[in-house]
Simulated scan of single mutants.
Amino acid sequence: MKRTMIAGAVGAALALGAGAAVAAAPADWSKVASKDITLFYPGVSPLEWINKGTEHGGARALKKGETCADCHHEETADMGKKMASGQKIEPSPIPGKAAFIPVKVQAAHDGENLYLRFSWKQPAASGGAKMDDKNPVKIAFMLESGGKVELANQAGCWATCHADSRTMPGAAETKTKYVKGGSLAEGKFYDLHQWRSGEKKAYDGYVADKRVMEGGKALVSADGKQNGDTWTVVFARKFAGGEGDVALEAGKVYNFGFAIHDDSASGRFHHVSLGYKLGIDTKADITAAKQ
């Protein structure tokens, strides 16, 4: 089915399932509060690495309940520089790979739909191969509810990143992201939404015992545009959903993280955020207020 274009907001809506409501994003995003979050190149730093005290000094802090953002929020750019250059935990550095990407994040809702807006400047191209030549840019975000996934409250999406996942050194290409003990039935999963620039297509899936890119019912639309050297991507997502969708409610806080695959990157060669909190009408790192 065709969906109405929301001028200056969501843009051309994507038909993601019959019966999905047409969403109207804020007409003036300049009036919506923003949060500056720096994504960084993570190198080979899976969950197993951050939990290993002999390799990662923050492992002890994690065991005490501190979050990754508590320690690293102000130094993500410097961390990215070390890893992109091959100075630390990157056995295969890519010449000219951007070390970090500053992103402005905004959130709002209308009582039925959540709107997330991401904007950033396109980094200079690297000298590496185009891993995904169909999609120069991909952006994805994940939500988790209640901290049922181990370390989700502290490490954000890192609970889906493992040493045996595809594109990790020596890993099988058939092994996707997953959650240890992941189970939709038990609520141990991440809700996953992704937009791809070349395909001009959005995906609504989840990560539990494996990653599934389609089948979700919550995503209404996603639209991305490049204006000069600046990208802007807006997602519209229903509060309610189906299997693999995190149900959203006003007054609650959710674990939130996002990533950008820049310069036709794929797999682990992306830029990632630390773990943050998204609140619906309540104080959090990022708050979606009703418009």
Rank of each mutant, 00 (worst) to 15 (best):
F40A: 10
S197D: 08
A288N: 15
G187I: 06
A129V: 12
T287C: 12
S266N: 13
A163G: 04
A265F: 02
V179T: 09
D285L: 05
D245L: 07
H56K: 08
P169A: 06
T287W: 02
H109M: 03
C71Y: 02
R211V: 00
P95D: 06
C71E: 02
K188F: 03
T76L: 12
E75G: 02
I94L: 07
D191Y: 00
P46F: 11
R268N: 05
T76P: 10
K138V: 08
A171Y: 01
N153Q: 02
D191T: 04
V44G: 03
A99T: 01
V44Y: 06
W120Y: 14
E243F: 03
E90S: 12
A250N: 13
G251D: 04
W158I: 09
N113W: 00
T174M: 06
C71H: 11
I6M: 11
P136M: 07
F100R: 10
S266T: 08
Y41P: 05
G279T: 12
D262T: 10
D204K: 06
S264K: 14
K283G: 00
K177G: 04
V179A: 07
G19C: 05
G53W: 07
A21W: 01
F269L: 12
G58N: 14
E90M: 10
S221R: 00
G127I: 09
A25F: 05
Q291V: 14
D70T: 09
G257Q: 09
E90P: 03
A289P: 00
L192P: 09
A218I: 04
T174K: 13
A77S: 11
P102D: 10
S30N: 14
K81G: 00
G257I: 07
H271E: 12
H109Y: 02
P95W: 03
M79T: 07
V220Q: 06
R196L: 13
I89H: 02
S145R: 12
W120V: 07
L278W: 00
M131D: 12
P42G: 13
A9Q: 14
D223W: 14
A108Y: 13
A289S: 15
A15R: 14
H109G: 02
Q194Y: 00
K217M: 08
K88Q: 06
P136Y: 07
W158S: 13
H271T: 08
M168I: 00
R60I: 13
K283R: 12
Y254D: 09
A13Y: 05
A240K: 10
S221Y: 00
E48C: 11
V32R: 15
A289Y: 06
P42D: 13
S85A: 08
G96T: 11
A125M: 03
A250Q: 13
T167V: 00
Q122M: 15
R196F: 06
A202D: 03
A152F: 02
L143Y: 04
K177M: 13
I101Q: 09
M213K: 12
G182H: 13
L151W: 03
S221D: 03
H109Q: 05
